[in-house]
């Protein structure tokens, strides 16, 4: 069984075709970067995989299940995006506790996770007082507290400074071991850091899918047609 499978997926928003016949197959344990310029359709793919959107045409399956129909398959995913899904008026601990209950996860792991992400000293502080970097670290903790086999990272470094970005990528690399990873980004270097395969998306179409080559940036620029610009 594949971890993620998209067959002839079309997604329209009104008359606008955000995705046009996407076929993508991700095996268990693979880490795949969805690379593409802004508006290419990366986040739409992530939303389809996470069950937030239904495809207009085609089929999306995660571990053999249709994510927008089957709520239980969502237990097998952890999602980190630029939106942290954290409640500003709850403490770090309370946020994780709430999500633990939604995912039926073991609450005893919360302290361990907070320590791993360097937030133990701030566990009783309201999230509204956290920096962007701290919120993103807590967001990763939220995404992995139920130990999902599939980790989806949707431009998690957006809004972070260079240091914050480096630190976050370090954590992602650590927690992503032995997991299937889908990582959307428009930053080639970030893709190279943690992924072994790349899917280049442009204008809603999958135009390249394969192992990450040595000179990914050149490949990327060539296939999205930006070379020389």
């Amino acid at each position: 069984m594949k971890a993620v499978e998209l067959k002839d997926v079309v997604k329209k928003f009104g008359n606008f075709k955000a995705l046009d016949g996407i076929n993508l197959s991700i095996e268990k344990g693979e880490s795949v970067a969805l690379l593409g310029p802004n508006g290419a359709g990366k986040t739409t793919i992530v939303k389809l995989i996470s069950g937030l959107l239904k495809p207009t045409k085609g089929e999306v399956k995660v571990f053999g299940e249709i994510p927008w129909k089957n709520y239980e398959v969502r237990r097998m995913m952890g999602i980190v995006s630029h939106n942290t899904f954290l409640y500003d008026d709850l403490t770090a601990y309370e946020n994780l506790q709430f999500y633990c209950k939604l995912y039926d996860a073991d609450e005893s792991k919360i302290d361990e996770l907070l320590e791993f992400f360097g937030l133990k000293g701030r566990k009783h502080d309201l999230v509204r007082n956290f920096s962007r970097g701290m919120k993103q670290r807590l967001s990763i903790a939220r995404a992995i507290l139920h130990d999902p086999p599939l980790l989806i990272l949707d431009e998690p470094t957006t809004g972070l400074d260079i240091e914050g970005r480096k630190e976050l990528m370090k954590y992602v690399a650590k927690v992503g071991r032995k997991k299937t990873i889908i990582f959307t980004t428009h930053n080639v270097k970030e893709a190279e850091e943690i992924c072994d395969k790349v899917a280049i998306i442009c204008n809603g179409k999958l135009i390249h899918f394969g192992e990450i080559e040595r000179d990914l940036e050149k490949v990327y620029l060539r296939v999205v047609g930006y070379e020389g610009t």
Binding site: S50, G51, L52, Y71, E72, V73, R74, R75, M77, I79, N83, T84, F85, L86, Y87, D88, Y99, L102, Y103, D104
Partner: peptide, 13 residues
């Protein structure tokens, strides 16, 4: 607070 999607992606009916 942009948390509605957090509920939508959770295994909750």
């Amino acid at each position: 607070t942009e948390t509605l999607d957090g509920l939508k992606i959770s295994p909750i009916a």
